[in-house]
């Protein structure tokens, strides 16, 4: 008998029981809808903030790098038929990630027509920071998860495939790193790597791979013990071939899904670091920093007036929490669907 036939049968994913369970979960749907909104906002960030780009002086480098003149900004960025619309949405110039400042005053200004969400401390436009910050959030989340997943798969794979003392050693290191508080570890590593978005992302990845490595290894060991692998071995396939042909494809699917659910928590951690002053440079569109701008204004002006500057802290913190919530709702539902027992 061909070992392939012994593999559990695959049905189309949309007809699977797992997906059905997922679809029937109202929380899953809520999470998905919220995420879709975030994706749309992130994608349309240039179009949404076109008026700010057109009017605020310090947005000029961005406008210029897009090859636009000041008068035509709104039209060009809001018309899907124009090439600039797609260019700005898909690959905007780096200078566009700098939040434009409408002046240099350290005081926040309440929402107005030109600045619908108001200006935060330092006269940075809040709407701009939040919409472009959504792009930064997705960027950080996916890239960090991607890198840590790659590291995790390699190390976990080596560990599970080789076994023996290598496995033992790797798992001990993993234990040490898992036991250590993540935030503290990332803080140390990112300070040493230097400030900057890339550095913080690297730090997050360097610390983040451990969980994946352990999961992947465990999954490999489980698959290895299954009948079809035994059969393949009996038919004389080389261990390497078995590993890549049978074991890896079986284990990797679940890992991918589970890892992608970590995007939310990665973004939250990154925001926390940014709040502490580690991460993107001042003025870069980034939620953690938007909250950090608000730090001096959460108590309002006098007793019992925490809402005098409500816009500087409520908008960014709510957006950040909703983003985390969306991912966690989704993640919870996915885990539920994969493992119906819990």
């Amino acid at each position: 008998m061909n070992p392939q036939d012994m593999k559990p049968k695959h049905e189309p994913w949309y007809r699977s029981k797992t997906f059905k369970r997922f679809r029937r979960n109202p929380l899953a749907i809520t999470g998905t809808v919220m995420l879709i909104i975030f994706v749309v906002v992130a994608f349309l960030a240039p179009a949404i903030t076109a008026p700010q780009l057109a009017t605020i002086r310090s947005a000029r480098p961005c406008v210029r790098n897009l090859g636009l003149k000041r008068g035509e900004v709104v039209q060009a960025l809001r018309n899907p038929l124009k090439l600039t619309f797609w260019r700005a949405a898909i690959k905007p110039p780096k200078s566009c990630y700098n939040i434009p400042r409408a002046g240099y005053s350290p005081l926040p200004k309440p929402p107005s027509k030109e600045h619908p969400f108001g200006l935060t401390s330092g006269s940075y436009d809040i709407l701009y920071g939040l919409t472009w910050g959504a792009r930064t959030a997705f960027y950080i989340g996916f890239l960090v998860v991607g890198i840590s997943l790659a590291i995790g798969i390699v190390i976990g794979g080596v560990s599970g495939f080789l076994g023996g003392w290598v496995d033992n050693l790797i798992m001990r290191v993993v234990d040490v790193m898992l036991a250590f508080p993540r935030l503290v570890f990332v803080m140390i590593v990112s300070v040493i790597f230097g400030s900057g978005l890339t550095q913080v992302m690297l730090a997050l990845a360097v610390v983040g791979w451990v969980g994946y490595a352990r999961f992947f290894r465990g999954d490999i060991l489980k698959t290895k013990a299954q009948d079809f692998v035994d059969a393949a071995r009996a038919l004389g396939s080389s261990p390497t071939r078995i590993f890549f042909k049978h074991v890896v494809p079986n284990s990797i699917g679940t890992l991918l899904i589970l890892a992608s659910m970590d995007v939310g928590s990665i973004v939250l951690t990154a925001a926390g670091l940014s709040f502490l002053g580690l991460g993107a440079p001042v003025g870069y569109a980034d939620w953690g920093q938007m909250i950090s701008f608000a730090r001096g204004y959460i108590l309002g002006t006098a007793q019992g007036t925490p809402f005098d500057f409500w816009y500087v802290w409520i908008f960014p913190s709510v957006v950040l929490v909703l983003f985390g919530l969306a991912w966690n709702l989704l993640g919870d539902a996915v885990r539920d669907a994969l493992d119906p027992k819990s």
């Binding site: 951690t269 309002g300 007036t305």
Partner: peptide
């Protein structure tokens, strides 16, 4: 379940800021 997920999604620093603003500053 929703409460737990919300709690899980709240970064510590956001929670802390909200408490400082509402309970300490406001009340």
């Amino acid at each position: 379940r929703v409460v737990a997920i919300i709690g899980w999604s709240l970064p510590t620093f956001v929670m802390a800021i909200w408490l400082v603003a509402w309970v300490y500053g406001g009340l």
